[in-house]
């Protein structure tokens, strides 16, 4: 469930969107776009994320009548995001990493380092990769990640800490003199 929205409100929004209310669906889009963006970024190059986020929500709107439990909207959107970004990754496997390195905005040195760190996070197991990107890239806190993705807070907390430990080890292995 999205923070700030009660269970009833969320159910009403989903039901309205299911009945064809575009405004209700746009509200869901605004609420969940950041979470979907993070999941997509874990599997697809940065330059493709905005398109993929749009595609996730367009597909979600088409399939919305299939969603039985309104409270499950977060997990359901996350599943669509995973599938679409996985398909995209399969289609563009060869160019994904290179494109990201060059596409990282800002200072070239910092951009290169950011791309490298993102590459290390992307190489982590699925559960760690998603929670770390939602936390470190999208700036969501643990409870928020749990509510948006439909995972239990306990799982998210474990994933965050184990993922962070693994990330540290891999970054140190990559560059033993680096601080992070």
């Amino acid at each position: 469930m999205e923070p700030g929205k009660t269970r009833t409100e969320l159910a009403r929004l989903v039901a309205a969107a299911r009945d064809g209310d575009h405004d209700a669906f746009h509200e869901l889009y605004r609420s969940y776009a950041r979470m979907v963006h993070g999941i997509v970024l874990g599997r697809a190059p940065h330059h493709a994320t905005d398109d993929l986020v749009q595609e996730v929500f367009l597909q979600a709107y088409r399939q919305l009548p299939r969603l039985r439990e309104p409270e499950a909207i977060g997990g359901w959107l996350a599943a669509i995001a995973r599938n679409l970004s996985r398909d995209h990754f399969r289609r563009t496997r060869e160019t994904a990493e290179l494109t990201d390195t060059h596409a990282a905005p800002g200072n070239p040195v910092a951009a290169a380092e950011a791309a490298a760190v993102l590459g290390v996070i992307r190489a982590l197991p699925d559960a760690y990769r998603e929670t770390l990107i939602l936390r470190l890239v999208e700036g969501m806190n643990g409870p928020e990640i749990a509510e948006r993705t439909g995972l239990s807070p306990g799982s998210v907390r474990v994933n965050l800490h184990r993922g962070m430990k693994l990330l540290r080890e891999r970054l140190e292995r990559r560059d033993p003199h680096a601080d992070a």
Binding site: H46, D50, R62, A114, L136, V137, G139
Partner: peptide, 24 residues
Amino acid sequence: RLEQLLARYRQTGPPRALPALERA
């Protein structure tokens, strides 16, 4: 440090507007 480094990938501002919504 990691948050600041990776913030460049964050979705900032409102998400891109959706094109016309169509049902299946």
